[in-house]
């Protein structure tokens, strides 16, 4: 029981991070109908910016440094997200469907290699910034712990989710995004600037990915240029599981993938936890391609 609870806590923490990244996939897919395969790299850049910024602001108190790091990571990643959209996707918006996909993969490879060259291929560690936590339960020598950091990650994720939900469902920007998602031509005829709305969506996804990057940096204390690929595919799985195009689905999918991974690593083999996650991807694609919250494409005849 205690062990189960511990895995649950670990899984929810991991799931929060996946969920945040998955939202970027799902929002971009929703609005332009394309998987942004460079999204994992945006997250990786967020994590790198966090390492660099934490080192830069080492003299500050922790909370001041954290605030600066968050702002810094959001700005840089947002800028990358915007640039990627302008360079790799917008010129191909009216091209055949495979073209932006290929350019997305190209962008992903480029960003990985760019960071590898600019920052070096070795792991970049930072000293642990937040230590300690609560002991929830002590069951026969096994202490169930939730660290301050885990609490921070979960709370921040919940806040971001509530905020994003508010933006999408109650503000004019959210309405514009949903309108573009459903019918871009009609939206532009009603005076909506579709290009700008797509840009805003990319930047929103990038900012959330950057926040996930900062949290992961704090959580694991180490980043390298390849983490974007891994986390990206996991988050993509989460988005597909939840129903691509649905923000709630992405969050739930992230949580489920995090939990599956944590429990698999806890009860079976740690080395095989990726297999578990990717089996889910295969299974969802075969048996329920529209995911949990996705609405299946019904063709009217």
């Amino acid at each position: 029981m205690a062990y189960f609870l511990q895995q649950l806590i670990n899984g929810v923490t991991l799931g929060s991070v996946y969920g945040l990244i998955a939202i970027g996939y799902t929002m971009v897919y929703g609005i332009i109908g394309m998987i942004n395969f460079a999204h994992g790299e945006i997250y990786m850049i967020g994590a790198f910016v966090a390492v660099i910024a934490f080192t830069l602001f080492a003299g500050f108190s922790f909370f001041a440094a954290l605030l600066l790091v968050l702002v810094f990571a959001m700005l840089v990643s947002g800028f990358y997200g915007w640039t990627v959209e302008r360079l790799a996707y917008r010129p191909l918006r009216h091209s055949f469907r495979l073209a932006p996909l290929i350019s997305a993969i190209g962008m992903s490879i480029f960003l990985q290699n760019f960071v590898q060259l600019a920052q070096g291929a070795r792991n970049k560690p930072i000293p642990p910034k937040v230590q300690g936590g609560f002991t929830l339960l002590n069951d026969g020598g096994f202490a169930v712990q939730i660290s301050y950091l885990q609490i921070g990650i979960i709370v921040l994720t919940i806040m971001l989710m509530v905020g994003l939900n508010g933006v999408i469902h109650t503000t004019s920007l959210g309405r514009r995004q949903r309108a573009c998602e459903q019918d871009k031509v009609m939206a532009s005829l009603l005076g909506v600037d579709v290009d700008r709305t797509v840009s805003v969506t990319f930047v929103t996804g990038a900012v959330l990915a950057a926040l996930a990057g900062v949290m992961v940096t704090l959580y694991y204390g180490v980043v390298d240029f390849f983490i974007g690929f891994h986390a990206g595919i996991k988050a993509f799985t989460a988005a597909v599981l939840g129903g691509i195009g649905s923000v709630h689905g992405a969050m739930l999918g992230g949580l489920l993938i995090g939990l599956i991974e944590a429990f698999w690593a806890g009860y079976f083999l740690t080395e095989w936890k990726d297999v578990a996650a990717f089996s889910i991807l295969v299974m969802v694609l075969i048996f329920r391609p529209s995911g949990i919250f996705g609405h299946p494409e019904v063709e009217k005849i």
Partner: peptide, 21 residues
């Protein structure tokens, strides 16, 4: 060409997004 998964009212609010922004 409506926005089928938005409410009737939201469809009309999209048309007024400039003032709302």
């Amino acid at each position: 060409r409506l926005f089928p998964r938005m409410t009737v009212l939201e469809n009309l609010l999209v048309a007024q997004h400039a003032e709302l922004m």
